[in-house]
Design a protein around this nucleic acid. Structure first.
Lengths: 181, 181
DNA sequence: ACCTGAACACCGTTCAAGT
DNA sequence: ACCTGAACACCGTTCAAGT
């Protein structure tokens, strides 16, 4: 709030005439950014449509690193992004899922998306600080006798850093959701 | 740091003789909690073993709400929990995944787990505050003409609050990871 | 070797006062 | 109707000084 105020050339309290608290300002900001999000034409195939809509959601949320902190607080949604959620649940439904399963499916996708964004942000922050990642150090210096598989995976962790981490689980997750057992 | 200090009956700066900064204290604390985690006997079937190990990880991390904030910072790992990660990647490997795919699979599972914990914590916080959830209000008051599927799902969101949100996507995700296309 | 007190540079927010 | 200044109750952390 103080930083915004000085950037506006006003006192911190001037903001509180227009907004109840920090949370309200963040919802308004989030909603404005959501409204500016492009609405790309999505594939006709419902399964591809789910995947594409998810990627649009992820990319939109990944645009600003502070959004993740807001999402982590929970109970915040941008009304002007509802069309995207509709797109996802409608496509899940079109894939043959019941309404109940589509709702659960969206929740699972949402959880995965939030997690991916948070983990990615963490990696980016470490990368910016030029500090060697502690997680990587621990994972690549395990005792091969005690933890053989982990030791064998050592070279894979560093290689994985670069690739898009969202795709890793998105396809499997959506595949799994659409495979009714 | 100040709260810990007063709880110990010492000055805030006394802590800094034993620990470099807040992060170091948190890793030590996280590692101690991880060391105390029970090591249950996991199912022999590798697929069930993955699922069980994931649930142990989730339950361990869900024990204290502050852990989520620490994880959100990124680049923190408790060395004394490596046996569980070994368990997961070894089981994925035993299911037929290559080392590279097992590493990617673990990352996907990790992302989903972090997301699930964060979303769940958010819901719990709102529940504690007795405030009616804003997300729920928005989702259950959509225009049926504009967003028909979302409107049809309205009753499902409230019902979903109670159930365990981790299970929602864990099975589908692991199923999807183990289904090589 | 271990701890303390004062201080710095931050937060979000309340409250009374100004125009 | 809109804004300001001082203040409150917090943070993590530095730095010099104490025993």
């Amino acid at each position: 709030m103080r930083r915004v105020a000085t950037e506006l050339g006003a006192s911190p309290m001037a903001i509180y005439r227009h907004v109840a608290d920090k949370d309200e300002l963040l919802v308004l900001l989030l909603d404005r950014l959501a409204a500016e999000l492009p609405r790309p034409t999505l594939p006709a195939d419902p399964r591809d449509r789910v995947l594409s809509a998810c990627r649009v959601m992820r990319d939109g949320l990944a645009q600003y690193p502070w959004i993740v902190d807001v999402l982590a607080q929970g109970d915040l949604i941008a009304p002007s992004i509802l069309w995207l959620i509709e797109e996802i649940v409608a496509s899940l439904h079109a894939c043959g899922l019941s309404h109940a399963r589509a709702a659960d499916g969206y929740r699972a996708i949402w959880q995965y998306t939030v997690g991916s964004l948070i983990v990615q942000r963490g990696l980016d922050e470490i990368g910016k600080l030029q500090r060697p990642p502690y997680v990587l150090k621990v994972l690549t210096s395990v005792d091969p006798d005690q933890l053989p598989t982990l030791a064998a995976l050592a070279p894979h962790w560093a290689a994985a850093r670069g690739r898009d981490s969202y795709e890793l689980g998105l396809r499997p997750l959506v595949d799994g959701l659409l495979t009714i057992l």
